[in-house]
Amino acid sequence: MTELSLRGLTKRFGAMTAVDDVSLDIPEGRFVCLLGPSGCGKTTLLRLIAGLEAPSSGAVLVAGRDQTDTPAHKRDFGMVFQSLALFPHLSVAENVAYPLAIRGVDRATRRNRAAELLQMVRLPDLGDRRIHQLSGGQRQRVAIARGLAINPRVFLLDEPLSALDANLREHMQMELRQLQQRLGVTTVVVTHDQKEALTMADILILMDGGRVQQVGAPMELYRDPANAFVAGFIGNTNLLRGHLRGREMAVAGTTLTLDDGDRIKAPDGPAILSVRPEDTRIAARGVPARVTFLRDLGESVQVVMDMDGTEVTALFAPRDRPDVSLGDSVHLAFEPGRRVVLPA
């Protein structure tokens, strides 16, 4: 069942359109990652969903009911802010129980629930501390516990892990994901870290310039990008300009014949061929190129080549290491079935 629906959601700040005509349907219990470069409108979209910002046009529906005009405090959502926004004047337990206190829940119930929530985020015994007595990771957990205190319909998080160091961050990603799966709460997390998005998401929403570029499972976006922006943003890719006619793609003076498995998403004419570095091969015949850089990364070998002015990267497993050296002229082949032709 669709829990959260956005219909043509648009937000303008003066002449600038921060969120542009976003329509989405998010099924109940899914973990959604909102991914995109800085300034693409992720935070604004999340604030529109939360009701902290009024849309210029469009609607927000929760379980089929229009909530566009429902004020933020009547939506029964949970949210974790980038700054965490924990209350310095309350103890950890009081912070966690704040939404319950606002709803008039009695003191004893509040205390039990706070203890339960702190147990859940693995912070028992810290209930009496002040916020400034906690480490960054502990604060993170308190904010998450507080956001989940009322069993929210929708749980929203804005770059919740961005302040943590890499190790803790990876750990918290897994923990957040497991917690969400256990509780089954529909969750939307904003991030600009694609690895984080790939780790956690059921559904990935990739935004750029206020618009949704593609929605789908992470692997879907990786394998089957809708456009060059998606291909370039999710993982590394080689984007080669060329010309498409039927199943023939001309790249740097060489014509490649596309296979059944290859995805053609552009009309005839100028187009972009997207191939992942691991699907790029050095072969006896193919597109001519010259080796400009070689490096051994341990788990893989990276070969960078110049193909008629375009930089192309190929990645090999150590045992497939090609016998080339700097300045060699080589020919490139692209794994059939893994090629994607995108609109230019």
Binding site: L52, H73, R75, F87, Y98, P99, I102, A149
Partner: peptide, 9 residues
């Protein structure tokens, strides 16, 4: 804003 989301008018 956090307090708003948590139900405070």
């Amino acid at each position: 804003e956090a307090a708003r989301i948590m139900g405070a008018s």
